[in-house]
Amino acid sequence: MSQKTVKFEIATPEKVVFKKEIKQVTVPTTSGEITVLPNHIPLISTLKPGVIEIKDENEEDEIISMAGGFIEVLREKIVILADTAERAQELDEERIKEAKTKAEEKKQEISDKDEVRFANISAQLDKEMARLKALTKWRNLKR
């Protein structure tokens, strides 16, 4: 009766990024990294920016970078609602590095009084870091 795979979906407000049967998925929740297997108990958790690692039904790995959101584990499916998400193979290293340096520079400039802008830049930086991490992981996998 226990299933070996489970339906999995990553949705962002702009589109559905990923939809497949999977064997396991590892996500960075705010209270730590967890791996979800089929037949997990129903769970809703907030996610922080980071890397999602997926093993699909054919044992193939997939790496996705994500900028925060939620995971919802149901009996028959797992859903991630992400603010933004991109597949690692679609990422462009040069552009990420550029964006990262820019964000770092801006972070330096901002005085500590400007909390809102500081938070925005930090979020941007986290996002770029997640992308970079996803890319590195993807490369290591393919090697």
Binding site: P13, T30, S31, P42, L43, I44, S45, T46, G69, F70
Partner: peptide
Amino acid sequence: LFKYEPDENEVLNSILPRLIE
């Protein structure tokens, strides 16, 4: 029926602004 991490209010706090967006 669900387990919430960290807890319900925390999840609610972050999901509501998203929903409005």
